[in-house]
Amino acid sequence: MIPEQAPCVAVIVAGGKGLRMQNALPKQFLPLQDKPILYHTIAAFIEAIPAVRIVLVLPTEQISYANMVLQQFSGGVEITIVHGGPSRFHSVKNGLLEAKEEDIIFVHDGVRPLVSPELIQRCYAAAQAHGSAIPAITVSDSIRQVNNTGSIAIDRNALRAIQTPQTFKGSLLLPAFAQEYREDFTDEASVVECFGQPVHLVEGEKSNLKITTPEDLLFAAALLNQLHENN
């Protein structure tokens, strides 16, 4: 457990409709080991930092599903539910209304349920030290860049795949989100960089996968089973 030297808030963004999951139920509410995917995501943050404030950002039409998650916490849990916006940027911005400049702020994909408490704590400590902490992993596949005449090989050693929780001091993230929206704002790191501030990478985890397809859900279930067997 890390010493809680600053208050912190986790803005968990869950705006997916699950079209690639071939299921009418939004993917963040699909069962993973008999509990909604979002339950596992939220539980990881509470385990890592019990005093963390949870802000859950959902599309307006999915707010009614939230009880599916809340009722899984037998001891009760306080979660602030916020309406999402037309883009990730706007959804995160709505969630940040619940944060303060003195906070350490995590922004995490709701469908990354296997994020470990250790990664959360590592991001917290790095954000305190550097202002930001962006989890990243090395790229193991060969990469090619497609152009008008074909494609060219790219040196994968210079590339990193970016994950969440992207973590920042509130004094850095909140002013950055006061900018006007741009289409190239693909994540929080890109917003902060556009604001003129560098971001600090930390080691991510290959198991911290983002569930977008039925195959991803199978992988997540297998990883969870292995984790429980090892414990």
Score class of each variant (00 low, 15 high):
Ile2Pro: 00
Ile2Gln: 03
Gln5Cys: 05
Ala6Gly: 03
Pro7Tyr: 02
Val9Cys: 15
Val9Gln: 07
Gly16Ser: 05
Met21Phe: 04
Met21Cys: 05
Gln22Arg: 14
Ala24Asp: 13
Leu25Gly: 06
Leu25Lys: 14
Gln28Phe: 11
Leu32Arg: 11
Leu38Pro: 01
Thr41Cys: 02
Ile46Asn: 06
Ile49Trp: 02
Ala51Leu: 09
Arg53His: 12
Val57Asn: 08
Leu58Lys: 05
Leu58Tyr: 01
Thr60Phe: 02
Gln62Leu: 00
Gln62Pro: 00
Ser64Leu: 08
Ala66Cys: 13
Asn67Ala: 08
Gln71Leu: 05
Gln71Arg: 14
Gln72Leu: 09
Ser74Met: 14
Gly75Asn: 15
Ile79Cys: 01
Ile81His: 06
Gly85Tyr: 05
Gly85Thr: 08
Gly85Met: 06
Pro86Glu: 13
Ser87Gly: 10
Ser87Leu: 06
Glu98Arg: 15
Glu101Val: 15
Glu102Cys: 14
Ile104Phe: 05
Phe106Pro: 04
Val107His: 08
Gly110Tyr: 01
Val111Ile: 06
Val111Asn: 08
Arg112Glu: 07
Leu114Phe: 01
Val115Ser: 05
Ser116Tyr: 04
Pro117Ser: 06
Gln121Lys: 14
Gln121Ser: 13
Arg122Tyr: 04
Arg122Ser: 14
Cys123Met: 08
Tyr124Met: 08
Tyr124Arg: 12
Ala125Met: 11
Ala127His: 09
Pro135Ser: 01
Pro135Phe: 00
Ile137Glu: 10
Ile137Thr: 15
Val139Ile: 13
Ser140Trp: 04
Ser142Trp: 08
Ile143Val: 15
Arg144Asp: 02
Gln145Gly: 05
Gly150Glu: 03
Ile154Phe: 04
Arg156Tyr: 00
Leu159Glu: 06
Leu159Ala: 05
Arg160Gln: 13
Arg160Ile: 08
Thr164Met: 10
Phe168Cys: 09
Lys169Ser: 12
Gly170Phe: 04
Ser171Ile: 07
Leu172Gln: 12
Leu173Arg: 10
Pro175His: 09
Ala178Phe: 04
Ala178Pro: 05
Arg182Cys: 07
Asp187Ser: 09
Asp187Asn: 15
Ser190Val: 03
Cys194Pro: 00
Pro198Val: 09
Pro198Asn: 10
Val199His: 02
His200Cys: 06
His200Phe: 12
Glu203Arg: 12
Lys206Glu: 12
Ser207Pro: 00
Leu209Cys: 03
Ile211Leu: 10
Thr213Glu: 13
Thr213Val: 11
Pro214Asn: 11
Pro214Met: 12
Glu215Val: 11
Ala222Gly: 07
Ala222His: 10
Ala222Arg: 13
Leu223Lys: 14
His228Gly: 00
Glu229Pro: 01
Asn231Lys: 15
